[in-house]
Design a protein around this nucleic acid. Structure first.
Lengths: 188, 188
DNA sequence: GTCTATAAATGGATAGAC
DNA sequence: GTCTATCCATTTATAGAC
């Protein structure tokens, strides 16, 4: 049962680094030191494993974002919980957001996994939306359009920042992240 | 020689819809009505084909953006040349930017192709940078940081918008694009 | 729960005829 | 330039022993 979690963690990492279609049971077996057949014992097929990865990612991000929101009443500190994850992925120079990876591979990924990842995407967008709405109401954030529209921009830009950062260097990626934050800052 | 271009066009489309690693010579042969062996005659290996796709994409985008810049002195009309391409991809609900697709698959794509696509990315960023610099100088665009930093944000957000739009619907994707434009609009 | 062995399908690639 | 035929490696998956 612990094994199952181990597999899940490595699989998640491989989705982030190589994408769903580009990692194999062979890759997993090498990383984990067990055979491919053993992995099939825990996850009958690759599609099942992919779905489990999406479920795990949704749970993990939901926990992290909920905690970040509850940790403060300051919208800027709350939203930093999301930006910290993005920043961490950029600094790794290996990982991008698993949801972004899945979106980029949407025509290739098995449907249940894709649907769960979209659920994750919408969870993040709603979470961001709530926070920046508070930020605007409190006068500490400014943006055009509705909170949801701006939240979608932030999410899309963050996905792009991770991908751009991995391909063009940590420094460039972090620069984009900084620029995302700047779009929310009230002009004085 | 015309065949070579046909292959290149379908391959480009498949990179945009499925990603480099997820399309095969078999897919191409079905779409084109010729055998895999025939495709190997035009492109010795998949890596060669991938590189050729990247070269074609760079040429095409450079031509389109150059034309758009020369068509007007108004920065907003100039930059619309880029946004129109992004918008077209979003509305297709199938294609994303080939450079974005490659960035997402960067650990899997053959190096020469990856390098050429990064060249493409930097071309677009420079082009955007020049235009928004003019826009700011003329007082018709506003943004924090340097033109290059803002250009990287626009590019990243546009990549994200195409991926988000394909996975979540045309309407949502176009909404993000609208929000990107709003970022540049001077507050009155 | 993990292994060996093997199946069945797919993907990239080559040889050689036409 | 296109074809048939074939090769070899990889990948997903299963059967059955331990």
């Amino acid at each position: 049962m612990d094994r199952k979690q181990e597999i899940l963690e490595v699989a998640t990492e491989l989705v982030q680094t190589h994408g769903y279609s580009a990692f194999s049971y062979h890759d997993l077996s090498e990383r984990l030191g067990i055979t491919k057949a053993s992995i099939h014992h825990h996850f009958a097929g690759k599609a099942d494993l992919g779905f489990a990865v999406a479920e795990k990612c949704l749970q993990d991000i939901a926990a992290a974002l909920t905690a970040s929101k509850q940790s403060s009443n300051d919208p800027w500190k709350q939203i930093e919980g999301y930006f910290a994850i993005v920043s961490s992925d950029i600094r790794s120079q290996e990982r991008i957001c698993p949801a972004g990876s899945t979106q980029a591979d949407i025509n290739v990924v098995p449907e249940p996994m894709a649907e769960k990842m979209i659920e994750l995407v919408q969870y993040i967008v709603s979470w961001l939306s709530d926070i920046i709405k508070d930020g605007r109401d409190q006068g500490v954030m400014t943006f055009p359009g509705t909170p949801r529209e701006q939240a979608e921009l932030i999410f899309s830009a963050a996905q792009g920042a991770m991908q751009y950062g991995r391909a063009n260097g940590e420094k460039r990626g972090l620069s984009v992240l900084k620029q995302i934050k700047a779009t929310l800052k009230p002009k004085r």
